[in-house]
Nucleic acid binder design. Structure first.
Length: 798
DNA sequence: GTAGCAAGTGTCTAGACAGCATGTC
DNA sequence: CTAGACACTTGCTAC
């Protein structure tokens, strides 16, 4: 089918596609159009990665917009949200507007309301539903990308429930679901009342094979000689082999350490094939990486990059990740060894994909467990760059003949697993049952069960017994913790009351009144209603269990909680991913625990309950990390001390910021006297500063480093910036431009630095030696009152 | 004495969404 | 039912 034959798209769209080099639709795309993609029909497209799924979505969304509607594109990752946004922004030339909504990415709901296409993560959509964004009921087309992630234990239920809610809000809307090829795409299509497009078609051929000994055997029967020389590893031989033909490779391994070690070794291979120009460009890239963060991870990565290889995992900072991805896409980097981050993330195709490790440590399995077929196929699907490679190759590595055979059977010939809903797990239901009640989608137990009937889980399981049983457990939990109340049935004359407003007199609750009215209101049933606390928890997007922990912790505090106490409180919450205790650290943190026991909120588990006590210490470790951060320790020092990467540190700080923000709202909600303490702890984590710098850091352009330098020179609050000697300010802030900018932000009348010389430094003031040593002293060697503190430095440096 | 290597032993394990309101060095 | 790569240490040999 030619693009010219498409109808129902906004004027200009077809020209745009043609300019983009698109003339003929791929077969799956043509199939989608025939199935009614441009006419508002529901579709499930289960097709391989990189075979034009986005185009199917685009055709659906654009035609929906042309009919006067509005489209939502749901993605699993923030990085994908920005990738898709950029892709769709090309449509602005023919008048289609695009907005993004993720947790850390701009945008008010009002602003999103004006956009034709909104790209958002599934959690963000869920959050928007909970917060009652009006525009959600204007949607006429919803696309769910990577819908097979519904199978994911943690995040799948969110997608599932959110889709069910969106369908309820907009009964007639078009649903388009994009999936990897999975075992049961037909079931998903059945659930969504959608036409199914299920095909293995790819724009470039994919040859799958297994390397063993000196031979690479492919699924099409062909063989390629790839000898392994001397003590080198199989992957090294395979990378060299394809690199000599000008092809890049992607190596998937099962741990960060393996990724780093492999990248180091593969650098020996890639450096052999570099041109002088490439060497120069790589040196620049390496410098950029070193510049981004001063950590061991950065140095190691930069050392690899100079040789044309790189590793990729979640310990990298987001800047480093995109630097690596971009350079690989530009064919500057020849090989990346990666953990699964790269399989699910943004598009980074390679000529040859090598799946080195097909087993991964899984404590619940008691050892190494084989990866899912779906996951291995996702990695393999990264092989083949459209327009650049004649075909893609995906290779598994076997050490023996038997293993080779096993890999063919297990992964090459095998079909991916079916997608199974994980909704009936208690943690998932705990969250979603509360949200469903709080946002008015159900107001009785029966209404709740009826709502859950619209999920994939129900359509898969057939019997609702288990779901009902878990729901009852969850309801009991929510009631026990004062998140919901059960009320005896009332007469049918009762005003509906805002489903999200506890002070029930607000009758109009915007778009959601209709949703609420749909809820079953049988007069016999007792009513379920979210308490004010329950509404808050739902809107804050907290796991109710986290909220309960926080509330109990705050209530148990007799004295003003310290920052460490609050950090530990949020760190032990299910919403904070645990930092894990290394060998010997149980003792170190056990010691720290006895030292600071009094600061911790709530009751510690007994030491005889080993697992729970260890979790408690792991949370203490996380909170110590946060305290170090809020004490102005350097990134380098923290990453080294906790053996983590810059990306992990950012992640922990981000999560803590979010949870402490939520804790502040909860503190207010329960009228805790510690609200201010929580706010301050949150601000300290947000900016990474000690208490005395909080004021300074509120000035635009002043962060933890600059604030410290100003403070050391006697400028202790924003008002001082307005009166301070400019020379001193300039000395603290270096660049004139920066200094002027900051003075302006502080509200100084005349911020100009013209003709000002930096003051201080060696010259003048009271003893340059004393001030110098004060300046170089790391913050951890200071205590709140400025005295040196022996106990901290001995405890601090493990 | 020491370089170089084989064998033995201990360690440790993927990822990443969310509130709210704006901006580090 | 279920681990295995890496990094570091020790021990041996050959000069």
């Amino acid at each position: 089918m030619n693009v010219e034959e498409l109808s129902g798209l906004p004027p200009g769209a077809i020209d745009h596609f043609r300019e983009d080099g698109i003339e003929e639709l791929y077969p799956p795309q043509a199939e989608a159009v025939e199935a009614g993609a441009t006419e508002g029909e529901n579709l499930v497209a289960a097709v391989p990665t990189a075979s034009g799924k986005t185009m199917i979505a685009a055709l659906s969304m654009l035609s929906a917009i042309e009919r006067g509607g509005k489209a939502l594109y749901i993605v699993p990752l923030r990085a994908l949200a920005s990738e898709k946004k950029e892709e769709f922004e090309a449509y602005e030339q023919f008048g289609v507007t695009v907005g993004v909504a993720t947790g850390n990415y701009e945008s008010t709901s009002d602003w999103l309301a004006t956009k034709d296409i909104v790209v958002a993560t599934s959690e963000k959509v869920d959050s928007l539903v909970r917060n009652g964004a009006d525009w959600l009921s204007d949607l006429t087309c919803v696309v769910s990308d990577e819908i097979h992630l519904i199978d994911d234990r943690e995040r799948g239920p969110t997608l599932e429930v959110t889709l069910a809610k969106l369908r309820r809000l907009n009964p007639g809307m078009q649903q388009v679901a994009l999936s990897a090829t999975v075992g049961n795409a037909d079931e998903i299509a059945g659930w969504l009342d959608a036409e199914l497009i299920d095909t293995d078609w790819r724009p470039i051929d994919l040859k799958m094979g297994v390397h063993y000994g000196n031979a690479l055997n492919f699924d099409d029967g062909s063989t390629r000689e790839v000898p392994v020389e001397g003590s080198e590893k199989q992957e090294a031989a395979l990378v060299r082999d394809i690199l000599q033909e000008g092809g890049s490779s992607l190596v998937f391994v099962n741990s960060r350490r393996n990724a780093e070690a492999a990248a180091r070794r593969l650098g020996q291979v890639s450096r052999e094939e570099l041109t002088a120009d490439e060497r120069a460009e790589l040196a620049e890239l390496a410098a950029e990486i070193r510049d981004d963060s001063d950590t061991e991870t950065s140095t190691d990565l930069a050392d690899c990059v100079e040789r044309g290889s790189a590793f990729h995992h979640a310990g990298l900072s987001s800047t480093q990740r995109s630097l690596v991805e971009d350079a690989f896409r530009d064919r500057l980097l020849k090989v990346i060894s990666a953990t699964p981050t790269l399989a699910a993330g943004v598009n980074t195709p390679a000529r040859r994909v090598i799946v080195r490790d097909w087993r991964r440590f899984d404590p619940s399995a008691g050892g190494m467990a084989p990866l899912d077929v779906l996951e291995v196929h996702q990695m393999m699907g990264r092989a083949g760059r459209p327009g650049l490679d004649p075909y893609g190759e995906a290779v598994l590595l076997a050490k023996g003949h038997d293993e080779s055979q096993e890999l063919f059977d297990r992964y090459v010939w095998a079909d991916p697993e079916p997608v199974r809903s994980k909704l009936a797990a208690e943690p998932a239901l705990r969250t979603h049952v509360l949200a469903t009640i709080a946002s008015g989608f159900a107001r009785t137990r029966e209404g709740l069960l009826e709502f859950l009937e619209a999920t994939l889980y129900a359509s898969q399981s057939g019997e609702s017994g288990r779901l009902a049983a878990v729901t009852d457990d969850v309801l009991a939990y929510l009631e026990r913790n004062d998140f919901i109340e059960r009320e005896p049935p009332r007469g049918s004359g009762r005003s509906s009351g805002g489903p999200r407003e506890r002070d029930g007199d607000d009758p109009a609750d915007g778009a959601f009144t209709s949703a609420a009215d749909l809820a079953d209101q049988s007069e016999e049933d007792e009513e379920l209603e979210a308490t004010s606390l329950g509404h808050t928890v739902s809107r804050l997007y907290l796991d109710p269990m986290s909220a309960a922990d926080i509330v109990h912790g705050l209530e148990s505090a007799d004295d003003r909680p310290t920052a460490l106490g609050l950090y530990q409180l949020v760190s032990r919450t299910p919403d904070m991913y645990e930092l894990y205790l290394r060998s010997g650290e149980d003792e170190q943190f056990g010691e720290l625990y006895y030292e600071r026991e009094a600061e911790l909120l709530g009751d510690a588990p007994s030491e005889f309950e080993e697992d729970r006590f260890e979790d408690w210490l792991a949370a203490l470790k996380t909170s110590k990390l946060l305290e170090d951060w809020a004490r102005e320790d350097d990134e380098e020092r923290i990453t080294e001390r906790y053996k983590i990467g810059p990306g992990d540190l950012r992640g922990k700080v981000d999560t803590a910021e979010w949870l402490l923000g939520a804790a502040e709202s909860l503190a207010q909600e329960i009228d805790s006297e510690w609200t201010v303490a929580v706010r301050e702890a949150r601000a300290r984590v947000e900016h990474g500063v000690s208490e005395e710098l909080l004021e300074l850091v509120s000035v635009g352009g002043v962060g933890r480093k600059r604030a410290r330098r100003l403070y050391e020179r006697g400028i202790e609050e924003p008002a001082d910036l307005r009166s301070a000697d400019k020379g001193v300010v300039l000395d603290a802030l270096k660049g004139e431009k920066t200094a002027e900018n900051i003075l302006e932000n502080a509200g100084r009348e005349d911020p100009s630095m013209d003709g000002i010389e930096p003051a201080g430094g060696e010259a003048g003031n009271d003893g340059s030696e004393a001030s110098g040593s004060e300046a170089t002293k790391t913050a951890s060697e200071r205590t709140e009152d400025g005295e040196p503190d022996d106990s901290q430095s001995s405890l601090g440096d493990f």
